[in-house]
């Protein structure tokens, strides 16, 4: 039983901490007499979220944001994994590409969004672009690191079997880099989501980011909180999807084996 509790600690602590947070929140409003326009009571937020769930608009906007996030993330994976692998394998590619990769990261990306909207209009395209630009970087750097830090003993094994470059890449370098790549994906999906939402803040008529702005303009704090809850839940689901992917793709890795042992023990 003790082991079970330890293995599933988050299942016990999370509800308790959330409950504590809600109590503090409620007490704060009551004690300091805060107006609803600034901070609504927890119950008002729950009611507002409940109403939102029944609203077709919420799901349409959610769909748009998820679509932009996933498409952006998809491109980020292609650029990040493909580019990272190429840079890790071929010296001159790394040297040529590095300044540009760094440039995309040091430029204030939020400023770029206005430019993208100017070029690409108010549809999904600029948001996808922002999501991609935000998300590809951690995926690329992690892939690069992963491909480069292959165990030398493993390299010896492949060399002693006279394996070619491509065989070495597919049977050694890629699987060996996979844990690092997945760590990059976990950050990447969150950044893609942020990119899509920030993109929606700044232009267009669709998505959860737009919805947030809409409620803000209407001074509807309870509605705003409702959207925030939706944003949090969707973000959480996206992240969980990657974690599940990790179990699928690297069942051999310590991070997964340890979890398995913890659950079994």
């Amino acid at each position: 039983m003790k082991k079970f509790v330890r293995g599933h600690l988050a299942w016990f602590t999370t509800p308790v901490l959330v409950l504590a947070f809600v109590i503090i929140w409620h007490s704060y409003i009551v004690i300091f007499d805060i107006t609803d326009f600034i901070l609504p009571k927890p119950w008002a937020v729950v009611k507002s979220y409940w109403n939102l769930i029944g609203n077709v608009d919420l799901w349409r906007h959610t769909g748009v944001t998820v679509y932009e996030t996933l498409v952006g993330f998809f491109f980020a994976c292609i650029i990040g994994i493909g580019g990272g692998a190429l840079m890790g394998k071929i010296k001159w590619v790394e040297e040529t590409a590095r300044p540009f990769v760094i440039a995309t990261q040091v430029v204030p990306k939020v400023a770029l969004i206005s430019l993208f909207i100017l070029w690409l209009g108010f549809g999904s395209a600029p948001k996808i672009l922002v999501a991609t630009i935000l998300a590809f970087f951690p995926i690329l750097t992690n892939t690069l690191l992963g491909v480069k830090s292959v165990d030398l003993g493993h390299r010896d094994v492949m060399a002693s079997l006279s394996a070619g470059r491509w065989e070495t890449f597919t049977t050694l370098e890629l699987p060996s880099a996979l844990p690092a790549i997945i760590a990059g994906l976990e950050i990447g999906i969150v950044l893609a989501y942020i990119g899509a939402i920030v993109g929606e803040f700044l232009g267009g008529q669709q998505g959860l980011g737009f919805m947030t702005i809409d409620y803000q303009n209407a001074f509807d704090a309870a509605g705003l909180f409702g959207v925030l809850i939706q944003l949090t839940l969707v973000g959480f689901l996206l992240y969980i999807a990657i974690v599940v992917l990790r179990r699928f793709l690297i069942p051999w890795h310590e991070s997964v084996l340890i979890e398995r042992l913890a659950l079994a023990g």
Binding site: G153, D156, V157, L172, S176, L178, W252, H253
Partner: peptide, 8 residues
């Protein structure tokens, strides 16, 4: 070292 590939 055995140098087995941990993913196989």
């Amino acid at each position: 070292e055995a140098n087995l590939f941990p993913w196989l």
